[in-house]
């Protein structure tokens, strides 16, 4: 019995010393955390670090990586001193260290002034004038696009995890310009589609806006950024899957913009991703190239990383 008690005290003592912060061991292996292949954040991250092949493919990543969701990666970085992961910028807390990317601090301000690189724009696109199922739909879509630039929409966008563009207009101050929103629209359906990464934000926006605009029905069918243009102004716009508003989580290409007026498209938000490590990790700054080398397995130890400061 004495021996057992002795053993327990020893383990407890060891645990307590283990809890006190030890020195960071440069020669430790890097533990790589990632989201799963269906995640929009993973898509944004992999594209951002120039490793787009790995956005949807697990077998290209360094062997022994861990799959976790946003909160679990955040939680893991409070435990694992040698881990590295990425989360959406809006969920960053002080419990972990958010790394500078190419020398730029990850902050909302640096996203909005376009200096922080690991981000992607959330874009919208609407159909051409007079190319809607009905006039009411066209008026509602115009009202929705105006709504996107208000502080009301900004709050919803920020709550849904993205970063809204700065605005000082409120919906109440412009709603009289859109008389359609005062009518009863509960029989009218407006079709939304395009990027699936934006689906959560878009649904939150239409849910709030429908209540402000006569309870129209918002039909969401998000199939990917490519369909943002294709189904509003491209080949399939007049088919059954055609959309009234399309979203894209990248800039529209010049080919897509060829037949589109400047008033038909715009940006509603930024989606920014931040690389995080444990607070004990001495590293402060990282580059996209180093990140790619870590995620592809070229660097497996923390000591493999070149100096970047």
């Amino acid at each position: 019995m004495k021996k057992i008690i002795g053993c327990f005290t020893l383990i407890l003592a060891l645990l307590l010393t283990g809890c006190s912060r030890g020195l960071f061991n440069e020669d430790a292996k890097i533990t790589v955390y990632t989201r799963d292949t269906t995640s929009g954040t993973r898509d944004g991250f992999m594209n951002g670090i120039g490793f787009s092949e790995a956005a949807k493919q697990d077998d290209l990543l360094v062997s022994g990586f861990l799959i976790k969701d946003n909160t679990a990666i955040l939680n893991a970085m409070t435990i694992d001193e040698y881990g590295i992961g990425y989360i959406s910028l809006s969920s960053l807390t002080d419990n972990v260290k958010g790394l500078k990317l190419n020398g730029v601090i990850p902050s909302e301000a640096n996203v909005l002034n376009d200096t922080y690189d690991l981000k992607r724009p959330f874009m919208w696109m609407i159909r051409a004038e007079d190319d809607y199922p009905s006039e009411a739909v066209e008026l509602l879509v115009q009202a929705f696009v105006a709504f996107l630039n208000t502080t009301d929409a900004g709050d919803i966008i920020n709550n849904a995890g993205a970063i809204a563009l700065p605005s000082s207009t409120t919906w109440d101050s412009i709603k009289n310009d859109y008389p359609i929103t005062a009518e009863d629209n509960h029989l009218i359906t407006v079709r939304f589609g395009g990027s699936d990464s934006i689906q959560k934000v878009a649904q939150a926006l239409t849910q709030a806006f429908s209540a402000k605009a006569g309870n129209f029905i918002a039909e969401h069918d998000h199939t990917g950024s490519g369909d943002g243009w294709k189904r509003t102004n491209g080949d399939s716009k007049d088919q059954a899957e055609g959309k009234d508003v399309g979203f894209s989580s990248r800039n529209f290409t010049s080919a897509e913009l060829a037949n589109v007026n400047a008033t038909q498209t715009g940006q509603l938000a930024w989606d920014a991703i931040v690389t995080i490590v444990h607070n004990d990790n001495p590293i402060e700054n990282i580059t996209t190239q180093i990140l790619k080398n870590i995620y592809s397995g070229a660097y497996t130890l923390w000591s493999d990383l070149p100096e970047t400061d």
């Binding site: 060891l14 645990l15 283990g18 809890c19 430790a28 292996k29 533990t31 955390y33 022994g64 861990l66 976790k68 679990a72 939680n75 893991a76 435990i79 694992d80 040698y82 881990g83």
Partner: peptide, 24 residues
């Protein structure tokens, strides 16, 4: 498990000289 066991397993494995992956 995520808040407690992971931490314990991570630190225990450190004590025996193995770098576990955040206790997962």
């Amino acid at each position: 498990g995520a808040g407690f066991i992971l931490k314990i397993v991570y630190q225990m494995s450190q004590l025996v000289g193995v770098q576990s992956k955040g206790g997962n």
